[in-house]
Design a protein around this nucleic acid. Structure first.
Lengths: 192, 192
DNA sequence: CGTCTATTTGAATGTACTCAAAAGCGGTGG
DNA sequence: CCACCGCTTTTGAGTACATTCAAATAGACG
């Protein structure tokens, strides 16, 4: 149950068994059914979430009720509304499960406690956020310079597994194009 | 010379004089003339940069030679290619000064040393990256859901000072639109 | 099997882009 | 101080890519 998260953390910093056991004692395990919410708009995001299995998404509804997917998270990813988490303000996002999923949660106060007890975790999250920051920069650059077709091809390259399990209107939402456009792009690409 | 950076760091974590003095002993001061480069494509980004005064930008050239500006940094901002910094790979970005500027630099090895000597800095950068991550998410959402005009208005709201000092084709590049389009948008807005 | 949702297709529209040229602005040197 | 040069911004005309709206088809699930 904790194998994956240990490997995830040890990508950036090595832990003793004692440290790791302390860490897991702060975690909360949760099983999510398909479509179940982990966070709803207006609620305060008080925990970080690590995905053990399954797939979640974080999205936002605009005034017209359109969904914009900001992030997917499959096994071995972290997800959460960092703005709400940091500031304690209500979230503008929804996080829900796209399929039956298992997640590990850590509450903000426990995490603060952990940072103090085991500073390595402060290091881990510093590096993790630094990496996430880089990933978002890349996505912004894509938005600045690429056509819809290029963005889709990039997405296929970067997340070949995701393409499998997602309905394609959700891919469209993530890429910032309409489902109709994505359908046409796919048709075009199929003819090559 | 170090007043601003101290205030910047103390937004997230309080420092003793001793800690701060140790920190400043690791910094390198640099004055940049207008158009002078801090980082060039192909070079390795081995330092973080804090802007004391002036204004820098980070951008990338695509195959067609078009500039895409990924970030501006005025006084009190940090800038750097985190990908290159983390991995040691050559950077794909340029960073240069838009006007005469003064910056404080810290080399990667000094920063690592600092993290060990004064873990508060690990905390500081963890929070700083977490905040930056939030800012980029917001920008991605803008890219997904807003028209060029809305993005421009948002930009004006968020960075009213920047609008003043930047030539408008650079604002266009940051927003991911052509200079011609921005010119038309401004004309339209002026008529309201 | 029937219902609900997702995907595809078509036609018309719109937003932003490209290319080209003119106008504006700022700095430099005669 | 003025004239010129280079760069930025504006304007125009035509175009392309993606959107909207509408309808048909296909798929999934109870």
């Amino acid at each position: 149950m904790f194998t994956l998260i240990r490997k995830n953390i040890e990508k950036h910093t090595r832990l003793s068994n004692e440290e790791f056991n302390y860490f897991t004692s702060l975690l909360q395990f949760k099983r999510l059914r398909k479509k179940q919410f982990l966070l709803e708009e207006g609620a305060i995001c008080s925990r970080e979430c690590f995905v053990n299995s399954g797939c979640l998404r974080m999205y936002r509804l605009n005034e017209k009720g359109q969904e914009h997917i900001i992030q997917f998270a499959t096994a071995d990813w972290w997800i959460g509304d960092q703005y709400s988490f940091l500031t304690g303000e209500p979230s503008a996002y929804f996080i829900d499960a796209l399929e039956e999923s298992e997640v590990l949660l850590i509450e903000k106060d426990k995490l603060e406690q952990l940072y103090i007890q085991v500073p390595k975790f402060e290091r881990f999250f510093r590096i993790a956020f630094q990496n996430s920051y880089v990933a978002l920069q890349r996505r912004i650059l894509a938005g600045l310079s690429q056509t819809a077709e290029e963005k889709y091809l990039d997405f296929l390259n970067r997340y070949p597994d995701l393409e499998q399990k997602l309905p394609q209107h959700q891919v469209a939402s993530y890429l910032g194009i309409t489902p109709e456009s994505l359908s046409r792009i796919r048709k075009q690409l199929a003819g090559k």
